[in-house]
Structure formats: C-alpha cells, structure tokens
Amino acid sequence: MTPIRSELALVGNDVVDLGDPDNRESFARPGYVERVCTPAERRVLEAAEDPERLFWCFFAAKEAAYKLLVKLGEEPGLSHRRIEVASDLASSRYDDREIALRVGHADDWVHALASIGPAEPRFEVSELGEHARASAAGRDLLCRMAAEVLGVTGAELSVERRPSTTSHDGFEPPRLCEKGVPTGLDVSLSHDGRYVAAALAEAKRRQ
C-alpha cells in the first residue's frame, strides 16, 4: 500500500440471521457450500463442531471483505471463492491482498467486519423492530453511531447511495453526509432477516 492509502480507513461489514429459514435452506442445498467456499475452507468446515454457524461466519466474512474491496476499486464479482477466509477468521485473502477481519456471533446471528487503515472501526448489530424497515433501521443505527463520533445530532446526518452501473446491487457504497456534505467517515451497512448492522471508521487526521 502507498503512504496515502495507509491514511485511509475503510470498512465493510455483514450480518447473517442464523434463524432465517432461507439461510437454513440454502446451507442444506446441495452445491451451496461448494459454490461459496474454497477447498481449504471446506476442510475446516468438515472438522467443525457447528459447521452451519461456521459456514455463515465464512460467508459474512467474504461479504464484508467484498464491500471493502469494492471501495479499493476491485471488482470481486459474484465469486465468493475468490475471497478465502483464514481458519481463525482473523483475515481474508483476495489475490495478493490480505484484509483484516473481526468476526463475532451471538445465538441467532453472525457478524463480520473487514477493515484497513489506522483507525479502530466501530460497529453495532441491532435487532429490527417488528414493523421496522431494514434499510431505514440500518441508516438510523449508523446515524446514531456517527453522531456520537462527530459530536452532532443524528438529524443532521444522512446516508446517500448513488446509482452505479457497475455494482451488483446497482448502487455505490453508502456515504455519510452532514447537512448534505460528505463526512470523513467511511461507513458500511448490512441487514439480513431480523438484524441490521452498521460499521464506521474515521480516517486518521493528517498532521
């Protein structure tokens, strides 16, 4: 990495609802694990006490790394196997890039955070309210976290996603704005089933 790159702090995060029936069905589907995991990862799964939980840890880690790689200008595409997660879940590798990971889990969810840079990223996983919309809940969570960091009110913050013709979901990564102006925070949003997650990192201030 160049010195300029080392000044950047970037994050990607992903949450998976372990109780989501669709996730459970996917894990059981023939060929699904093979489509997502490398041979080395599958060997780790075969020896695992709880292979389903560990599989979703791998999956979330790959998704978190994917979101970060896009911010670095990479195009990992739809191939999960191009991102290999270490057996200790502490890092992932994409070609010659190594990305630090932090993977955590509770009874019903797993969460992965991928990050680079000097800043200590923050993240939070929250359960959706009964009638809450996931995308709005994720944005609210992120704005609340960012307001604390920036010393402003959440009402002054907004999350923007500009359309993109090259990304798989049709949008660029989210940007956090204060009164319409992009902040210095890099942010990431995720939701799955009953859970939303947000992560942010503040770029190291230049001297």
């Binding site: 996917s26 589907r29 699904y32 489509r35 999956f59 798989h168 979901d169 049709g170």
Partner: peptide, 20 residues
C-alpha cells in the same frame, strides 16, 4: 435488464441460490 440484485431484490446469499 438491470443488475441482478437490484432487479431480483435478493441479497447475496440468495444470489448464490439463483446461480445454482
């Protein structure tokens, strides 16, 4: 014929199912 995730409104876990 927009992006798969946007058109299908599926997340990436389901996109693997779509490929299969």
């Amino acid at each position: 014929l927009g992006s798969p995730r946007k058109s299908l409104k599926v997340n990436s876990a389901r996109l693997v199912d779509v490929v299969l």
